[in-house]
Design a protein around this nucleic acid. Sequence first.
DNA 1: TGGCCCCTCCCTATTTTTGGGGAGTTGTTT
DNA 2: AAACAACTCCCCAAAAATAGGGAGGGGCCA
Lengths: 242, 242
Amino acid sequence: MAQIVNHADVDRSLADLEHASELEDLQAVIIKLRDTYCIDHLVYHWVNSQGDQYGCGTYAPAWVDRYIEKDYLRIDPVVLGCYQRFHPVDWKRLDWSSKAARSFRREAIEFGVGNQGFSIPIRGPNGQYALFTASHNCSDTDWDEFTKTNRRPLILLAHFFNQKALEFEPDRLPEASRALSPRETDAMTFLAMGLNRAQAADTMAISEHTLRVYIESARFKLGAINTTHAVARAMSRGLIVV
Amino acid sequence: MAQIVNHADVDRSLADLEHASELEDLQAVIIKLRDTYCIDHLVYHWVNSQGDQYGCGTYAPAWVDRYIEKDYLRIDPVVLGCYQRFHPVDWKRLDWSSKAARSFRREAIEFGVGNQGFSIPIRGPNGQYALFTASHNCSDTDWDEFTKTNRRPLILLAHFFNQKALEFEPDRLPEASRALSPRETDAMTFLAMGLNRAQAADTMAISEHTLRVYIESARFKLGAINTTHAVARAMSRGLIVV
DNA sequence: TGGCCCCTCCCTATTTTTGGGGAGTTGTTT
DNA sequence: AAACAACTCCCCAAAAATAGGGAGGGGCCA
């Protein structure tokens, strides 16, 4: 188990990362970092809402293939468990109670992933979601020691890595759509909060008829075919925040 | 304009940040950092889907009060513009074309915010959204020079700061919102896409009655009071992506 | 000044959604 | 074996949303 990390090596790897000019370079950096930390694996895995995914790291290619083939993204308790967290999490603290999760874990260990892991969730707009994971095969106490010591550098590394990976992603701009007027925005917001038209109209201190006009003009501007659609579009375009 | 940054001071501030044990400590750190970078302002601003917000930074208290009072969160092109991005962005590149945006900007400058700014968006689960912003009053070329030089340290700082701020937030969720079942997720997704119940049922190849059961159970799980609310919540919690 | 957009109010009908209820199958977890 | 969750189907009556139409006042911009 790695207790001593050569920080100069980490710095060197970060410098390499800094100068990475294509996705492939990241792979080399992550291998070096894995060696520096003397752990079994270090992995960066990125998914977006279109189902595109990109990963680099030190897992066995056979495991990666199997993971994709079996669509383990939908079972993996690490992915699911981190999805709703903002804090890094030790795999021990995740929910392995379901049968699917346990058999997934058994298989992962067979492929050399390791029995211990520490994952850092990172998020982007529109459901983009990345995980930076360190994994290893060792006792609970050794692993706790490792994560306690290296928690913060790993977090920094995760964000550094993510930032670099995103440089190779185009910054997809929001679709051009006419902005909503203030009242339309209010209307969409209150509807998204669950008020019905009468309540929203009351809250906005206007008649329900007037509110309807706003909803319809918002629907028109957003190219939506009903209120729910309009609210969904307003949200996904960031026009309202709920 | 600040061209020379004392990195030892930055490191010292980071060490302080490391040892921050309450939210108030962050305020002291951000002031030091602002001074180190010799810019007018450095601000961390955090919002979640419940409308809770927390900020620390160096803006004039009068501006912060005005911002909250006027609900500028819904107008501010920085907030809205960053909402859909994952890359840090220079304020110059945002959309200031609307009248509301321009008058907002005018007012912000009056309150000493500065004519230049650089904001880094950071996201968490459930619609949590934070901005780490540096702002200053200077020429475009000076500011471009500054952001070019300090882009990466600022990004690291942003995530460091965010990580620390989140330590004071409870990592809520386990059963706060139970995951939706696959069919419920489908139902929410099709409704968010604008289909009505008949169309969604048709698309899912089930009866409309069955679809209704999914919608109602999803609504129950999400604690939503109607369909639009349920879709909005599912979206803001990242359970569906449209 | 004329055009355009925003804000406000009103009508009638029709379609859609909602809020209750109930019932059976399959599968997994304990 | 029993409990639970997910998936499927059905009825009814009441509430809400929708699709058309129309009208006037105010502000901004060219």
